[in-house]
Write a protein that binds this DNA or RNA. Structure first.
Lengths: 209, 209, 209, 209
DNA sequence: GATTAACCGAGACGGTACGTCGCGTCTTTTG
DNA sequence: CAAAAGACGCGACGTACCGTCTCGGTTAATC
């Protein structure tokens, strides 16, 4: 009995459909973009009928967020090189890598789109980034313990400072983003941290970070 | 952005229609969001018939980008207080103010949406930000001349560093954004600049910024 | 000004669409029958798009009843040969003719279908037959005036007696129906009338007949 | 009608299912009507799974005709009062009773529906009525033997003349149908019969009655 | 009394048609 | 000539029910 779950459904076939549809959804997203992603095309690409998609996902939006969430659930390795600079560089570069591929671009765009009026998407996006943040925090705390960073450095603040210029270029200025962008972000972040500009809030910043 | 080259037309009546439709477009954008913005509703809100809208704007996308472009063309005052810190604080705070209003939120969201596959929107967005950047550069160059910043500080790089954490919070983390966010961005930016982390590229950054 | 109606719509094109769709509806009805009549096929047959059909008719049911009603609105000539027997024969034969054609069969079937739960169809059907009845009554009253029939003969009752066996065979027994059926109905009806079996109710029949 | 030739099967369990589904089918037919009768609802009402229904009946149509046929197979008592008038009155009134109940209405409607294009339904309907006719014929032949009716009276013709006005009102005019309707039909039929209008065909009517 | 074969419950699936919405085009009428 | 009015082709939406197809789990007749 390999599937001794509590639910008594024959998950066997269903799981394959789920996977195929998810893959097809992401593929279509990359090819056509958020707006032009039609359920019918996704279904066809997945080798499945339209109604089968609607049976599992209530509508286009939910199909998309679900596929995205599943895709983002993949672990990102947290570096531990023993030095803050190389750790941050690794983090920044992996971020760059994740979002410069066509797939990454499409996913990023999709996560931004329609967020204002569809709370689920906004929530999903926030959750993904909070998660990444939480997993990366040890990098900073370890550096503090090693004495590489001031004791009152705020890990979240530091990591946001690291990520911010990369997202800015990806989303707003559409500059070319590569490893030098990542390295420059590291330089700025460390400069700010050493200058004591990334300390935990003394009351001037509310606890929303 | 568009009205100049159409000067040969009888602008008399048309100008009123243009203005009304633009206003209605932004209003609908704020109320319903990008996805649910329908030409028919915009037309009705503008007290104009649908076909009249289509006569002037080829499609929904163009109507939107045009309205947005017109809206963003409003001047932002470039501060000149005599000190880089207060200047940057003014810039950062005006950025925060611009995008924390419901209108600003909607506009920001709209400019991100569908950008991946509709080049016009991406171009418009890039143009707007490049423009803002260009207009703000004097703030930095003046500070360099005053000796407040290292001589080889890259103005664009500095301004992006200033803006980046604000956009990150607006678009990704959905943290609360207010004046303290602006002030914190200033602190980080100045720390980096003084540490020489915002110099013009010595070859490690291509000329795309 | 050939179209000086109160409503200001350009009826020009619309009327053509109406006619084409009505014709296509009846044609499909004959070919495929009530159950298999799909709006999409009707539209295609009419050289028109599905949504155009839905714009004018709320749903399949209404499209059908409307087409049927329009079709049945055609006048049936009321005979006046001077003798009740030949008049009735003409009436009966025209009834037979109307419903033995494939079209007639299909229409008849459609008017019966779904009548139990869709009041509009039942109402339309009733209206059509009441109308036919009212138009044929003069045939009977003239015969009474000529002294061919008893003075208290009930015209409606007589005409129903005439029609009843024809409908029975069409709808229930599926016997072959032709002119001899019509003539036989006349014979029975006149026999009953002369025997005084078709008088207006003396109280033994409520006023619903 | 079907259970006899399947006698090799373990009828034990199956019989209950058959009965439950038949009852549920008729109940749904009365409640929702022919068009809105869904197999899933029937199954649920019968406390049985959809697939179980499909295992025994190929499709909706067959399920329906089977249920109807079973229902109609109930005997109608053939009266034998010794006088043709009271016999016919009994027949007519039982017909009225059968089809004025909600159930009767629904069944009648169902038997008419879709008959044009689904031969099975038409055949079933014809069979039912032929059967009733055949069983009632003795009433007429006995009357002929008693000398109450002309010797060459056609029994089928007479019985159809009796039934026709009742069906007309049920199906077409939607007049109120009650015992007076039945009695009036008897009056007309007897008048015609006595006048010799219901004799066997002299060759002008084929033997399809 | 265990075996075994038919039957049933459960539910996903491919498929057809439904009726709806919004886009962008077109034609006709009005000022 | 531009705007109003509105029908239209078109494509996608999301829904309902059809009839089919495994899968396990029961049940009941047989050995």
């Amino acid at each position: 009995m390999q599937s001794d779950q509590l639910s008594a459904r024959p998950v066997g076939r269903g799981a394959k459909v789920r996977a195929a549809v998810h893959a097809a959804t992401l593929a279509e997203l990359v090819d056509k973009g958020y707006a032009a992603l039609s359920v019918e095309n996704v279904a066809q690409r997945a080798g499945v009928h339209k109604t089968t998609v609607y049976r599992r996902w209530k509508d286009r939006e939910i199909l998309l967020t679900d596929a995205l969430a599943e895709h983002m659930a993949m672990d990102i390795p947290v570096p531990d090189t023993g030095a803050i600079e190389t750790d941050l560089r690794a983090l920044a570069r992996s971020l760059v890598q994740a979002f410069t591929s066509p797939t990454g671009q499409a996913i990023l765009a999709a996560m931004l789109t329609g967020a204002a009026h569809i709370p689920e998407i906004a929530a999903a996006r926030r959750h993904v980034f909070d998660d990444r943040l939480a997993r990366a925090e040890p990098v900073v705390t370890r550096a503090i313990e090693r004495g590489e960073l001031p004791g009152d450095t705020d890990p979240a603040e530091l990591l946001k400072t690291l990520a911010a210029p990369i997202y800015l270029r990806l989303l707003i200025t559409a500059d070319l983003v590569d490893e030098t962008t990542a390295d420059q972000a590291v330089r700025v972040t460390l400069a700010a941290a050493h200058a004591g500009a990334l300390q935990t809030a003394h009351g001037d910043e509310p606890a929303n970070g």
